[in-house]
Design a binder for these strands. Structure first.
Lengths: 192, 192, 192, 192
DNA sequence: TATGAATGAGCGTTCATTCAT
DNA sequence: GATGAATGAACGCTCATTCAT
């Protein structure tokens, strides 16, 4: 069984450059940036771009996958902090949600692009990592009595798949406040 | 003083057909549906479409305006039921939100299109009607002690501008449950 | 033989309005003005315009024909002045050429439009009147010894079909000076 | 310092093909030929055409520029012949005018297109070369006593900007005869 | 392998012309 | 006869994708 030839160093470098350029361009100019523009921003020719990602859809999917991987890392770190006893699960979950919404603000366009182009996640592994970590956080929070017993990962996904990522920061914060209430066992504090 | 000539019956019919076809097509295939496709779906030629709406932006703006008008009607009806003493404000508000979420599978895609195209509403009147009615509902609910005192119309907009309209019915219901909790003074019931 | 029904008074009026509006519009905005614009300028609907002139080409041809008729009138008047002994043929011919060039300056666009659309003159009668009058002027001038014996109407047509109608007045005057020299028996005066 | 990458051979070939096809098509079918037709005539796809000339205006401007360059070359060659004592200035000037008229069946239509599209020459250098050479020819002819002392380059431009390029050869010859007379100090010969 | 020129379907839009009212 | 809404081919132009160099 011929092992897959080790990728050339410059090819790897190009892939990186393309991915980050694609992220930047889509973020900056919306999902309709041309492949030429992405290529130019990456400092390569279109042909090279197509060698790495056979269609625009593939490229966008890869950008999204990177985002998902970062989210998974974040979730796992949060879980680790809880597991080590250094933090309360509910707090970490809320903070995690907050961070996801913030970073999605930047990546909003990328997600929109993914939807538009019907990109398939592809990187299920990262998604599974994230799910596992979030599930563990939820369970811990439920054990603490903070998180409502019927809450599941699906709820978390449902909520932040609808985060108002294109609204100003104040709106995003307010949204988080309103929305996390539904996950807890407490009502929102009235007055003070 | 010559009154503005009454529009021809078939022209009115076409305008209607075009508006609804546009809503459907944009919802179904995203903001990038071609004008030709919209025209075909409406059963007219492109030229006709352009006679009624000089640019794609205008067409999308008109679709949005229609939707907004329907929402305003709905909100006013809900308010009327509350005012007549026949319904509790919080219940009507929740039901209203529910209907909007059900109805507006269209809305999301169309609004995205509007944003992409930089369309300006133009129909501020309808938006104002809706705002007024919802504000009144909120105040009534707050008087009842059901709705959290810091809730404003902006919150309502914020929430249903992010409704998961493209998700299955069960997800939408669940979303409504989670999200309305943040508007109330009560926590969600545990088990029962 | 049924005689052609006398045209209705308003139809005649419309025809006139359309012709003059077409002339103005084409002059003002070039040969690419839309039929709708011409119709609007004439105060009628496009349908009416098409009842009078079945194609844009026909309309333009009619506008050109009007111009030709005016030129024929002018040529005949010049000839009459010469015949009555009140004017020298060469002078009248030169003046006639000058007037044609001046009025063509306005009608330039109309002629361009005629060419673009491949309009066929149609009003041969007017053209024949003009030709006859100019021929007579030439003969008179040749009898006077002013006009070069080999000059024919074709030369006149050749020259003013190439008049620089879209140039400023000074250029048109200069052009006339340069060009009429070839028609005479004299050289252009040097100095003084 | 990296020198501007040498253009690919086939790209150069395409550019040439496009330019000549554009000249031919515009000449043959007027300024309104579609870009598709020009592309087809050049044997390339529209996209290629747009790669070389970002707008129709640019394409037309390039065609005009090419023509102007050729005229400039011609004028300079004529001047060289005069300077070397091998030819009389007036003869060269007349011959030059004759060649321009023959050559520029293209020119007229293309210039009309340029005007319609509001194209800016851009290649002022070539125009300046032509002007300088023609001016020198005129001065030489005036020194010889052949050319009328008040003639300037502007006159030459004025005349051949109105050359009857779309007329049969005999008409063009006749036109040249009539028109050059105005430039000289002599009258046209009568009979012989 | 990287390059970037070429491809061509598709887009939003216009406008001469037709035809129901 | 007049109206003006409808038609649809055509236009200038874009851009994801292919392929000769």
């Amino acid at each position: 069984m011929a092992q897959a030839r080790a990728p050339r160093a410059d090819a790897v470098r190009n892939r990186r450059k393309i991915l980050s350029a694609a992220g930047e361009q889509i973020t900056a100019h919306g999902p309709d940036v041309g492949m030429d523009e992405i290529a130019a921003a990456a400092g390569v020719a279109v042909g090279t771009l197509y060698r790495h990602f056979p269609t625009k859809t593939d490229l966008v999917a890869a950008v999204v996958a990177e985002h998902v991987a970062r989210v998974a890392d974040d979730a796992e770190a949060a879980l680790a902090r809880v597991a080590s006893g250094g933090a309360r699960a509910m707090d970490e979950l809320a903070a995690f949600l907050g961070r996801v919404v913030e970073t999605s603000a930047t990546d909003r366009a990328v997600k929109a692009a993914a939807q538009t182009l019907g990109a398939t996640p592809g990187d299920r592994a990262a998604e599974d990592r994230a799910s596992a970590a979030v599930t563990a956080l939820i369970h811990a929070g439920q054990a603490d009595g903070d998180i409502h017993p019927d809450v599941t990962v699906a709820d978390i996904y449902l909520l932040f798949s609808t985060a108002p990522t294109d609204q100003p920061a104040t709106a995003r914060t307010r949204w988080l406040t309103l929305v996390t209430t539904g996950l807890t066992t407490h009502a929102r504090a009235t007055s003070t």
